[in-house]
């Protein structure tokens, strides 16, 4: 896992430029929106895995919960867009904090199995509560309310482009916030816990509290992305909860331990699936192979590879 890497001039600018370019390069704004939504989920996964060293199979549960809860709030309580997203954000944080608090009582494989067990339990709960979730059929007719604040409507978000712009703004905020979180006392301590938990404990940190907060933040962002996904599709499928593995793979392939990596990982996943879905539906085999190659040879993922290439070029110039 690569250490934090600071782009001269700030990676925020690079991301902002990418956000402008994405819909121009890609065939449809919907595809670009999908990339950003999964990039957010991968970013959240990265906070746990890349920075905290916590491999969670519970990300799908947070993603699904965000989709369901935002949708239910909009359908039954008739809340607006921002309130629905806020609902997803807060409930995601709460659920993840609870799951995290239980799961981190164990370490290693037992920790991983606990996250998996909670994820499966959530799946069957969602399946059983079909009055609320639509069960196996998924929750249909999820609305996408207009963007409004205090009665003033800014945009109805009806067109794919308008929705893309909205998601891009949310993504940029989340990306910048994540960068901030990593550079905060909390983030640096999280990295320390990943490096050597006994030592972190010895210098005075209650490592459990840090892990729980990491879960809460990750859960909040993942739920937010789940809610945005439901609004994109106008649909919240049960399979959302089984997304844990895909989110993990995007994160690792892109580069665990770098925020830009998550954007790259989600981008390559979504683009490859879009290009190959019709020609060769078995494209996921490539992802399996890429995952193995990354673990064996390119621990920093795609971004790590680009980073070392950049460094090599810069060094040559200096000579």
């Amino acid at each position: 896992m690569a250490g934090p890497f600071v782009l001269p001039g700030g990676s925020n600018l690079a991301v902002a430029a990418t956000l402008v370019l994405l819909p121009l390069i890609l065939p449809s704004p919907t595809l670009a929106t999908e990339i950003l939504i999964f990039a957010m989920a991968a970013l959240a996964c990265n906070l746990l895995l890349g920075y905290g060293g916590l491999l969670s199979f519970g990300q799908g549960m947070f993603f699904g919960a965000g989709a369901y809860l935002a949708a239910i709030a909009m359908i039954h309580a008739k809340v607006g867009l921002l309130v629905a997203l806020l609902t997803a954000l807060c409930s995601g944080a709460l659920i993840a904090a609870l799951v995290g608090a239980l799961a981190i009582r164990r370490t290693g494989i037992y920790f991983v199995m606990l996250t998996l067990a909670f994820n499966q339990t959530a799946y069957f709960i969602a399946y059983t509560l079909d009055g609320w979730t639509g069960g196996d059929n998924g929750l249909l007719d999820v609305p996408r309310p207009p963007l409004a604040l205090f009665g003033h409507i800014f945009s109805d978000l009806g067109s794919p482009t308008a929705y893309y712009v909205f998601v891009a703004v949310v993504f940029l905020i989340i990306f910048m916030a994540s960068g901030r979180i990593i550079a905060s006392p909390f983030g640096s301590t999280l990295i320390a816990i990943r490096e050597n938990e006994a030592r972190a404990d010895a210098v005075g940190y209650n490592t459990r509290h840090f892990k729980i907060v990491a879960f809460a933040i990750s859960g909040a962002i993942t739920s937010l992305s789940g809610a945005l996904y439901a609004m994109l599709l106008n649909f919240a499928p049960l399979e959302n909860i089984q997304m844990s593995e895909s989110i993990l793979i995007m994160t690792v392939i892109g580069g665990a331990g770098s925020l830009l990596g998550s954007l790259l990982g989600a981008g390559s996943w979504v683009i490859i699936s879009d290009i190959l879905a019709d020609i060769w539906p078995r494209w996921q085999i490539l992802m399996g192979g890429a995952l193995i190659l990354v673990v064996l040879f390119l621990r920093g993922g795609i971004w790590g590879g680009i980073e070392s290439l950049l460094k090599r070029c810069l060094n040559k110039k200096e000579r």
Binding site: L248, I249, V252, M287, G288, L291, V295
Partner: peptide
């Protein structure tokens, strides 16, 4: 991670 890749 590696065995998840193989399983896939």
């Amino acid at each position: 991670l590696v065995t998840v890749g193989i399983a896939l």
